[in-house]
C-alpha cells in the first residue's frame, strides 16, 4: 500500500469529520445545538482549507480560511443565535419523518454520492481527490435536511451547510477556487442570510409561526 503524505491523511480525517457533522445535523432535534454543529462544521472546513494552503503553498487560500472563520464560525452563528433570541424560538425542531428513517435515507444518499463521485474524482490528479465523494455527500445530506425540516431556521441552516459542502469540494478536490469567486460566494451567503433573516420576521408577522407548511395553503 502506498503511503499518502500526512497532510493528505489529515484532510481525509477532516473530510470524515465533516460527513459525521452533516449526519449529526440531520439527526439533531434542537435548533440551538444545530447552530453549534454548523459552527463546528465551519471550523472543520477552515482547518482543512488551512492545511491545503500550507501544503500546496497557495497564500491566497489563507484569505479564504480567514473568511470562513470570521463568516461561518463567528458571524453567521452569532446572527442565528440573535435571530433565535429575537424570534423567541428555542423550541425543539421536529423532522417530517422519524430520525432512524432519515439516517437510513442519508446512508443511501451517501452511497449514491460516492458512486457519482468515483468516475469524476478519477479524472482529477490531486492527492485528496477521494474527498470529492464526501463533499458531494455532505451537499446531499444538507439538501435532505432542508427537505425533511418544516421550520424556517433549520432549513436556512441546511442551506448554509450545503454551501459548506460545496466549498469543501472546491478546496479539497481542486486546491481552491480563484479569489474573486470565493469572495463572491462568501458575500452571497452573507447577503442571503440577512435577507432570510428579514423573511423570518415577515413570515412570523403573517402566520404567527415559522412553520413553512403555512406557505403551502392558498388564501381564499
Amino acid at each position: 500500500m502506498t503511503q499518502i503524505p500526512i497532510w493528505a491523511q489529515l484532510i481525509n480525517l477532516l473530510a470524515a469529520v465533516l460527513l459525521l457533522l452533516a449526519f449529526a445535523m440531520l439527526a439533531q432535534r434542537r435548533v440551538l445545538t444545530l447552530i453549534n454543529l454548523f459552527a463546528a462544521q465551519g471550523f472543520a472546513l477552515a482547518s482543512s482549507t488551512a492545511i491545503v494552503a500550507f501544503a500546496t503553498h497557495q497564500p491566497h487560500l489563507y484569505w479564504s480560511v480567514g473568511l470562513t472563520l470570521v463568516l461561518k464560525v463567528m458571524l453567521l452563528p452569532w446572527l442565528l443565535h440573535r435571530l433565535i433570541l429575537k424570534l423567541d424560538v428555542k423550541w425543539d425542531v421536529e423532522g417530517l419523518i422519524n430520525i432512524p428513517t432519515t439516517m437510513l435515507l442519508g446512508i443511501v444518499l451517501v452511497v449514491f454520492a460516492f458512486n457519482l463521485a468515483l468516475p469524476i474524482s478519477q479524472l482529477a490528479n490531486t492527492v485528496t481527490r477521494a474527498t470529492l465523494g464526501i463533499a458531494m455527500a455532505s451537499v446531499m445530506l444538507a439538501f435532505l435536511m432542508m427537505i425533511t425540516r418544516r421550520k424556517a431556521i433549520p432549513q436556512v441552516i441546511g442551506f448554509l451547510a450545503m454551501e459548506n459542502g460545496l466549498f469543501f469540494a472546491a478546496t479539497s478536490a481542486t486546491y481552491g477556487m480563484p479569489m474573486v469567486v470565493e469572495l463572491g460566494i462568501a458575500l452571497d451567503v452573507l447577503v442571503a442570510m440577512l435577507i432570510l433573516g428579514v423573511f423570518f420576521f415577515q413570515i412570523r408577522e403573517q402566520f404567527d409561526s415559522l412553520d413553512l407548511q403555512h406557505l403551502e395553503k392558498l388564501k381564499e
Binding site: 470524515a16 432512524p100 460516492f114
Partner: peptide
C-alpha cells in the same frame, strides 16, 4: 434503544463507506 443502536449502525456503515472511498 433503536435510536442509540441505529446511530451505532450508521457510524459503522459510514466507517465502511469512508474506508472504501478514501482507502484509509
Amino acid at each position: 434503544a433503536p435510536e442509540f443502536l441505529g446511530t451505532a449502525f450508521l457510524l459503522a456503515v459510514l466507517a465502511m463507506l469512508v474506508n472504501l472511498m478514501l482507502g484509509s
